[in-house]
Amino acid sequence: MSDVILLAHGSGGKLSHDLVKKTFLPSLANTMLNKLDDSAIFEASGRLAFTTDSYVVNPIFFPGGDIGRLAVCGTVNDLSMSGAKPLYLSLSLIVEEGFSLSELDHIVKSVKAAAAEAGVNIITGDTKVVNHGQADKLFINTSGIGIISPGVDISGANAKVGDKVILSGTIGDHGIAIMSQREGLKFSVPIESDCAPLNKLVSQILKASPRIHCFRDPTRGGLATTLNEFAAQSNVGIVVEEDKIPVKESVKAACELLGFDPVYVANEGKLVAIVEPNDADKVLAKMKQNSYGRNAALIGEVSDAHPGKVVMKTKLGPSRIVDMLSGELLPRIC
């Protein structure tokens, strides 16, 4: 067998079957996937959540994870942020001809590990191969289905004046890990992506306080964009305090060097919760018990001043607007 992906691996013929049997099934096997039918068939009742996301990260391997782990965590987290318990995922790959089979194998094993950690099954999948140059190594799409417990009502439009804003940990780790890998920047303390499935953290929070108003994972666009989304959807103001927002020293230094503001840098294993004031301490304590929430912090509150806007009290005392990220993050030039 060749050690690279060929167009024939995506043809649906013999090589495709080989790929499924030798690469995908050994890692991802479960009763529904093993049937290899056109669709996965399952029973479900209650309120379901359904989401999809595509992953085109470059580089595909980065400190703290790879595109496979990211593809599982991203979709698990999207379901979790709706208050859903993730059940099943699809996994669809678009592979550039010539891609290394051993790297593919590595990525499928990451998918397996992340799915196992999150307790979800991959129940359907697909692989397409495109000509060299028509995709950049590997793109992954995952879709996911989850179930929402009765009584849980989470939406970006639910923030109420007086609510507290809680962040589950340090910001900017993923974005800086990717940037430093991409640009060959080396720091004395290596910065790792925070890529992680947050469904268990979410279910622990919901056990402590089923009345959570908003959850969101501040991925692309960072914390600033998530807070602005809440402010706009709920038509409320949000005030956060700069020195309450946890940022790793190494990330802070890298941001200074690259000219970034950490509030705009991507995360893949953090969430922002907007909770009733009386529940804030309980939620914070619960978060700190989970390894993905141990640096959680109360960073601000929802206010009736300046609806639709996010304001940050800077370390020096004055306040300023925190706008959404616009355009791409690019390092400064002088």
Binding site: G259, A305, H306, K309, V311, P318, S319, R320, I321, D323, L330, R332, I333, C334
Partner: peptide, 18 residues
């Protein structure tokens, strides 16, 4: 530009100036 004055005033304006 990330160093442009308008970008700075727009992005970081104080709540009053906004």
């Amino acid at each position: 530009s990330s160093e442009g004055a308008c970008a700075a005033y727009y992005q970081y304006g104080s709540p009053e100036s906004s």
